[in-house]
Amino acid sequence: MTEFSDSFLTAWQLLAASDARLSAIVLLSLRVSLAATVIACVIGMPIGALLAVGRFPGRRVLIVLFNGLMGLPPVVVGLLVYLLLSRAGPLGQFGLLFSPTAMVIAQAVLVTPIVAALTRQVIADEWSEYREQLRSLGASRARAAATLLWDGRFSLSTAALAGFGRAIAEVGAVMIVGGNIDGVTRVMTTTIALETSKGDLPLALALGFILIAVVLAINAVAYAVRGWAERRWG
């Protein structure tokens, strides 16, 4: 058990020293995963809402597909995005591989199905409650989807947070498309993987504690904001 206490101590020391390299890594993690989550929400939430509200052929298939893609293995996503962005790949000319942008793309691909599937569940619940009222007022299905997205914004924050949690915790995709380049694409998870490789388990675990703390802090803030907003708007 000394390993755990050592790691806790190391984590505190790292935080107390506010090491510049560490904060750069934490910031990059946050930036990449936040950007990926925003993109995933912009794409995934309308898709989820349309799946909940729409009536079109193939809807059920798409629902099953998105639910299934929630479990997409990060390594597979990383590999796909790698092959797309590689110089020899179809988008190679942009030279995006091994850049934070590539990591954002990979995580957005990974997280969009999660956001879409969770959004569909939230909106489907709302839709069963609002359906008659909205149809009575003459809202088209697309309009209803937009209304429900806005009206369900507090519940949907959970979908966004789930996506963000997945993004910031995954290592497989960012390792492949980012390359874990020191100072450029090295994020929390790839640093942890690297330190584990070097056999420095206490440091790896300490970084893990910091990652968990960051994710917890963000969730706590989001939870507080949501609670406030719900009290404000009912």
């Binding site: 990059l28 930036r31 990449v32 936040l34 950007a35 925003v38 993109i39 929400c41 912009v42 850049s99 934070p100 942008t101 954002v104």
Partner: peptide, 13 residues
């Protein structure tokens, strides 16, 4: 939301 995304995506390019 949009500016947050933009900020996060474009920084350090």
């Amino acid at each position: 939301l949009a500016s947050l995304g933009l900020l996060a995506a474009t920084a350090s390019q």
